[in-house]
Design a protein around this nucleic acid. Structure first.
Lengths: 335, 335
DNA sequence: CCTCCAAGGTATATCGTTATACCTCGGTCG
DNA sequence: CGACCGAGGTATAACGATATACCTTGGAGG
């Protein structure tokens, strides 16, 4: 049905290899032939079959980004930056969700799908060590996020502890006495949540401050909805709370809504700091003080790591930690 | 390097076809053999090569969603819903950005990439008629968004005019005298922008109200940033403006920030209505009155349309219009 | 005049699956 | 007891591209 390379070759009166060579910019073709073939490609509307190319040669020019959730702005922003960077080298990004479908059959297919990319950047939030360990070493992969992942992979993680510590220290410094942690908890392993919780604790220890009683508000999901309800209820029960460190900006935005639901003001009554520095953070009112994970740096390093791995699949894995930075805005009080 | 089907077959002492049959749930295999093969698949860590499967049989179980921007929450939410729905039928979603890269070579590759999916849902915002028309008819495609697209495709569009009319009428009804349109304009063809602008006009005509002078605030992009600045500047220059209909929720959130930058209050001084009903809309303060495009309906219909098309590639194209609905919240004044 | 070479090409095998057609049993039925 | 059948399986040819090795020219150099 569809036009193939042979169709083009036949029309041009050459062999398929010549067409292939033209399309891949290989040298052994005269200028005249090259042009004739390019014209025919246009005329016939020929499109290369990437499955066939991949089968034979292992190149598609596509990189995969696997995220836990499509509807999480952090990953949208990450994808956009990644896409821009890859475009510079003529590559293309496809984003997939890591459906945590526990049905083995579907999970297997997901693994197989990864092989259709030249390389994969995998945000491992919510995935477990063993799932990841099942990935074949032949596939270039960079892991983003959690820290308890198989060491054999190249990986980048945020400095979660430091970020949380900066955020919490900032609140304490600005006069907060009871900084609750929205979305905290301890999962045992070094997950994003565990680490940020650790940073929150550490900031208190640093200043010799006591943790507030029941200071951790656990959340089903890091969503605005749950955060809003949880924070509102807590403030109604416990007027001593005067600051919220939210584990993500989304949680922070939810928390801000919850604070207002409780009839309190940000930052006069309750201060808030988030984590992620989403585009949104600058535009809520008041603008959100937050921790910037330096996404540009992460994205750049991820691609560099991937390229080095594609280049040499045997090289030693590298583990990078991205810097973090406090961005002071309106949800915390001026000094 | 990687384990192939022959490796499994050899290990099991059967032919590749038997392995293939097992993996595809075909009937002619004894239970014992089936189990033996499944065990070996596990043991050898075999993963099917989807490029090969696709080359031979045109099935990958992946559906593509092409969006104009990764970092636009509307599409994130759309993707998440779509993904959930497709998972129900064992399929998987990959999201790509339609790089408007005008380099012909890259554009060609993008077209080719589409062919690696069983079907594609294409948000055509920002693409032009001729680009779309280049898509081969053999690929099942559903178009989302703009209305000036080749009729041969199945497509769904929002009722943009009606939504904008509802939004504007609501503002006028709540006492607004000068409703400016943030992000409006007329591109000539029936783009989202043109249509919503038309709805804004229509609402004024319906009530015999005059359009405010210079009532359209054009925007480079439908982003919070630009909207904020534009709205702030306008309000400073022109205190007569008492309402903003924002062409998207993102623009609305930017507008709200701009209104506050100008020292005014929402909704007491300036009312705001958005369009999209993002998750975010409920959580900003005050909560955003907006137009709900019934994404659930859109997603459901898109998949249904795609399935019908996959089933019968010759069927007549269908053009659907999604219903819209006003969601009243806190950025407009109570009756 | 012969050798050699580069430029411009071609023929063929191959990548890993699946569709198709076929083969081989042991049993059943008339 | 022979014909037939279904269950369980196999051999082979695609699918559309690319890597590899080779082939043909028309000169240039000796």
């Amino acid at each position: 049905m569809a036009t193939t390379m042979s169709d083009v070759a036949r029309a041009a009166g050459v062999s398929v290899m010549t067409v292939s060579n033209v399309l891949n910019g290989k040298p052994r073709v005269s200028a005249a032939t090259r042009q004739r073939i390019l014209d025919l490609v246009d005329e016939l509307g020929y499109e290369i079959n990437l499955s066939a190319r991949r089968l034979r040669s292992d190149r598609t020019g596509s990189i995969g980004l696997i995220v836990p959730r499509f509807d999480h702005p952090y990953f949208g922003e990450l994808a956009a930056q990644l896409s821009r960077l890859l475009a510079a080298t003529g590559r293309h990004l496809a984003v997939e969700q890591s459906d945590a479908s526990k049905e083995a059959e579907l999970a297997a297919l997901s693994m197989a799908r990864l092989q259709t990319y030249d390389g994969v950047i995998l945000s491992v939030v919510g995935l477990d060590h063993d799932d990841i360990d099942r990935i074949r070493p032949s596939l270039p992969v960079v892991l983003l996020g959690e820290q308890n992942m198989p060491r054999r992979f190249d990986q980048i993680h945020m400095d979660n502890v430091e970020g949380a510590r900066l955020a919490t220290a900032h609140l304490l410094e600005r006069g907060a006495r009871h900084v609750v942690l929205a979305g905290g908890g301890d999962e045992g392993h070094a997950s994003m949540m565990t680490l940020r919780t650790r940073g929150w604790r550490a900031a208190h220890e640093d200043r010799g401050a006591a943790l507030p009683p029941a200071g951790i508000l656990t959340l089903e999901e890091f969503e605005m909805d749950c955060a809003r309800v949880r924070v509102r209820d807590r403030l109604r029960d416990d007027p001593s709370v005067d600051a919220v460190f939210a584990i993500t900006d989304q949680v922070a935005v939810g928390a801000m809504a919850g604070i207002r639901d409780a009839g309190l003001r940000v930052p006069q009554d309750v201060q808030v700091v988030g984590f992620d520095n989403l585009a949104l953070a600058r535009h809520v009112t008041p603008a959100l003080t937050t921790i910037d994970p330096e996404n540009a740096w992460i994205v750049e390093q991820a691609v560099a790591l991937l390229d080095r791995r594609i280049d040499d699949r045997e090289k030693d894995p590298e583990h990078l930690v991205s810097p973090v930075r406090l961005v002071e805005r309106g949800t915390t009080r001026p000094r």
